[in-house]
Design a protein around this nucleic acid. Sequence first.
DNA 1: CTGCATGCAAACCGTTTGCATCCCC
DNA 2: GGGGATGCAAACGGTTTGCATGCAG
Lengths: 140, 140
Amino acid sequence: MDMKNHQHMRLTPQRQVILEELGKVKSHPTANEVYDMVRKRLPRIGLGTVYRNLELMAENGLILKLEVGGTQKRFDATTDLHYHIRCTTCGKVDDIKLEVIPQINKVASDSTDYEILSHHIEFSGICQECSGSETYTSTN
Amino acid sequence: MDMKNHQHMRLTPQRQVILEELGKVKSHPTANEVYDMVRKRLPRIGLGTVYRNLELMAENGLILKLEVGGTQKRFDATTDLHYHIRCTTCGKVDDIKLEVIPQINKVASDSTDYEILSHHIEFSGICQECSGSETYTSTN
DNA sequence: CTGCATGCAAACCGTTTGCATCCCC
DNA sequence: GGGGATGCAAACGGTTTGCATGCAG
């Protein structure tokens, strides 16, 4: 029985619901927002459980823990590398459909003595709701 | 020189020392680290004063508040746009000498309905100190 | 005299943790 | 029965805030 780097995770009801609810939304909810979504189906779930499991799932690559600005951590059911944009007014975070630039890591390697592991681009801007001009209906 | 969009800020001794100390270091200290530096010269300064003034100076463009990952806010006396790299082990943040890509904002504009204001690239990696020592424990 | 700035401490918010209990293997 | 998972609440770390005092204009 050889263990891999990937540890087993029992699929408890709590974990299942967290995963499902996170997968339902296109937003990038904070732990507390996930807690609220999950609590509708599991009213007795604890906040600590949500935090513990989000952390655990992120370690196991099931979800993505976003390292974006702002005070709170955010989570994403889409695990492939993509960039984000954050509204400076309401703090909302959206995906931005921009091609990932893989070679940027290599370029940056020449400019630092860090061993570069990854990169992330975060745009800042104002979302349509906050700009007040809703000329056409946003998908969010 | 008269009433601009830039509001007046009295240059109190506390503010002067905060600015000076922040300008001395090439790192990107957290508010608490600034507090420690400043306290050596102004032992009775309050943490709240440091927080209030860092925030105020950032609003006035005197310094930069870094919107990087991690839990704590960091501050930078260099206000022109540049990218950063963060050590995933010890949390340290350094500048990375990489040419800023201004046209990326324009490209991104076509992919979102946000009004894009700026962007920031944050690399993640392992700094030289940490790549040597395995069992390094961070205080950040 | 008036108002902004400060020091201090308490409040606050997001997150983590200790612990008793529960449940699956 | 044993080890992980849970609910709960207390603790924690970083940041903000209320308030009385201080000081510059």
